[in-house]
Design a protein around this nucleic acid. Sequence first.
DNA 1: GCGGTCGTGGTTATCGATAACATCGAACCC
DNA 2: GGGTTCGATGTTATCGATAACCACGACCGC
Lengths: 338, 338
Amino acid sequence: MTRRMGGGAIRMQDVARAAGVSAITVSRALGAPDRVSPETRARVEAAVRALGYVPNLAAGTLKSQRSRIVVAIVPTLANAIFAETVEGMTEALRAEGYQLLLAHSGYAPETEESLVTAFLGRRPDAIVLTGLHHTAAARAQIRAAGIPVVETWELGGAAIDMNVGFSNRDAARALTTALVARGYRRIAFVGVDPAAEPRARRREQGYRDAMAEAGRRPLIHRLVEDRGISMRSGAGMLDALLAGPRPADAVMFTNDYIAFGALAECARRGIAVPGRLAIAGFGDFEVARECHPALTTVRVPGREMGRRAATLILDRLAGRPAPPRVDLGFDVVLRDSA
Amino acid sequence: MTRRMGGGAIRMQDVARAAGVSAITVSRALGAPDRVSPETRARVEAAVRALGYVPNLAAGTLKSQRSRIVVAIVPTLANAIFAETVEGMTEALRAEGYQLLLAHSGYAPETEESLVTAFLGRRPDAIVLTGLHHTAAARAQIRAAGIPVVETWELGGAAIDMNVGFSNRDAARALTTALVARGYRRIAFVGVDPAAEPRARRREQGYRDAMAEAGRRPLIHRLVEDRGISMRSGAGMLDALLAGPRPADAVMFTNDYIAFGALAECARRGIAVPGRLAIAGFGDFEVARECHPALTTVRVPGREMGRRAATLILDRLAGRPAPPRVDLGFDVVLRDSA
DNA sequence: GCGGTCGTGGTTATCGATAACATCGAACCC
DNA sequence: GGGTTCGATGTTATCGATAACCACGACCGC
């Protein structure tokens, strides 16, 4: 226990004494190495190692008004695709000495707001949010903080500051159009409550667009339980899809997990996919690539979005120009399930 | 832009002036509400709202030596099971006003070490690590910091401080024994390089234990690529498993994703599961429950581990007694795949 | 009635780093 | 050679909160 012996942890002052220099020189040797001579730097580094000194970033943050903290709020980590965005972001930020303060909102704007409030106290240098839908209070607080903001996973005109993502609507439309082109007649869509999840609403809208263009009537089904929507929910939709005199011959789910749940249920029931029912997902999660039959879906740039969000922030903080809007696009991936 | 107008952000002093009290009273109204009278508290809260005041936690941390930050390092977020642990942890910590500084090590102890170094500068109140295997330097630094530490996902005698998890070895042994009891004769194990992943090594050891107890010869296969081991890797093992004069009749994979990859490949190739090859996984991820045939596996308490790690920390920080070791156990889950 | 306790609120010093400004000698330029 | 620039380092003040200590009145018990 080096700490708390003889009255406290090792301070920069202690390192300075050991190296025979002043505290500010230690500060510079650590934070701006080319502002001290190589010999001095070496002495300081030796003293740092010898004493096991770890700079107190709270003190540095207070004086310099730069925390080197970036806040990120995602809806959930359970969905691997958001986890990838987070990983991409941390990696890019870590390389520049920034750290990530993370939380998940559970898709609730009110939770997001209270997280924003709590996190702003750390005086983050930037903040990354998921989507464009936030409470008015959250937006106001963030604006007042005057720091760079990146909104991800959606693209739109109403961004607070910077925006990196893709068009959920265009992606869903493209996928639907591909299904139409493949000859399916009764293409259904399974989504969540559009009031609850803005990105899902845009996907539903894209589906409607494509159906309208094709002169078809949309067939919308909604997942009821709003907590823990996932594979299980997809399996539960089959009855509804296949019921009636004119059952669906293809169905598009709001994400790959849900689609996979339905696919597995088809396997259990011996329903031919795509023969009797074609299935498409959204996201191109790993399970979509690996399951059998492999899922037709839309690939979205999860990890890249994180990386890009990070570089936008780093550019802005370094005073380099950063575009306010980056469209990373998407790819329709046609596989065997539809 | 409230900030930087008229020379800076709003300080506690400004709130104090607006409420007609001193700064320390504002501090107390916010941090220890029962130490001020209800009327004063109301005046302070009104001033806080009116001015949009957000306390600067860097300053508070510096003086109080309490950051209300907990550091967590996991191997990856891409695996949903670690993501669950993180979610469980954040939720429990958030309720007490603590925030989570998170990073992923990519399973590399050296990366973990450099993350520890970087994070300790924030003077976290506690730290949560995955597993018991860390570099000597990382252990030394953590010890020197003198803060509560929880190691998760493994159980063992060599914990730095507190330890919450389950026995990977016992879990793998129990699952193997169950396969033996089901009458499989040639049960193989597919794992990763045991030198690279300690938890995987323990699972392999548990498998060996059970095979020895049953008087069988272990059949160990190793996944070669050490980057991005996942579903794809499982699919690639089938040839090896079914080759030769005496192919395996059952196989146990080091996790459910890999097992699922193999299961899907069997479906593609028309190999009957469990008829020709029984398959078991590890972890009870969602895909294991929902795929067809559903995977026999071991359920491990991912989210609960996060919650428990958090409560251990909170107890310790509040001066309440906290057990040094919590075994959360596991459940063998027999399904259709084996 | 007087010391003691409690509830409430204020004063002062301080946490540990870094920005801003100052110093000082060497190099450099015409 | 005198002024200037530059590189390396030091001195001082300060970021914004809270711990530690103090003050003061109300109430209490004996």
